[in-house]
């Protein structure tokens, strides 16, 4: 059990995109702000800050969650993946390539969040139906694309993934 005074910072350590990160944070600091301000990974975007828009979605222990609805202290000891962790050795992730190909983005503000939810779906190994893709996307607001290109990109990624035997 640990008890802190109001302003006292708490030491936390977590694994972010495969890298060990240690930091000190006020308990009230949101995970989204910790990722952007303390770790310097600004690919995670902050839109509404109350869990509606989905821009700040990251993978928390493999699950897509809104990082504005978590405190950084709650992520102590966890594994986080952000959009910066998708590309490997300078090569874009399959989903990133297909979002470009299928016009799955325009202004790009919502894209990092949508990508992370899509990665969770892709990693589940199941071939999602269009309905399941739409259900997942209901957690993200995009005001540019009308979602059509986004859905095509994800469907295409799932097909490719299946051909490759689920490697990604």
């Amino acid at each position: 059990m640990s008890i802190q005074s109001l302003k006292e910072k708490v030491k936390i350590s977590l694994l972010v995109n495969g890298r060990e990160v240690e930091g000190e944070t006020e308990p009230r600091k949101l995970l989204s702000d910790f990722i952007r301000e303390d770790i310097g990974l600004t690919g995670t975007h902050v839109g509404c800050e109350h869990g509606v828009c989905g821009s700040c979605t990251v993978l928390f222990n493999g699950k897509a969650v809104r990082s504005c609805l978590m405190f950084a202290v709650q992520a102590n000891g966890s594994t986080i993946q952000t959009v910066e962790g998708l590309a490997k050795d300078g090569e874009q992730h399959l989903l990133q390539k297909l979002f470009t190909e299928c016009h799955g983005l325009q202004c790009g503000f919502c894209t990092p969040g949508i990508l992370m939810s899509s990665v969770e779906l892709l990693n589940s190994g199941k071939k999602p139906t269009r309905r399941e893709i739409e259900e997942m996307l209901s957690g993200h607001l995009c005001r540019c694309t009308g979602y059509k290109g986004v859905i095509e990109a994800i469907e295409s990624a799932c097909r490719t993934n299946e051909c490759k035997g689920g490697e990604n």
């Binding site: 059990m1 640990s2 008890i3 802190q4 005074s5 109001l6 302003k7 708490v10 006020e26 308990p27 009230r28 949101l30 702000d33 800050e49 109350h50 405190f71 202290v73």
Partner: peptide, 21 residues
């Protein structure tokens, strides 16, 4: 939109939690 300050406790079992409460 940032929360106001608070103290944070993270009890590791139920016994510790009810004592804190």
């Amino acid at each position: 939109m940032k929360p106001a300050t608070f103290t944070y406790h993270c009890p590791s079992n139920l016994e510790a939690a009810v004592q804190l409460l």
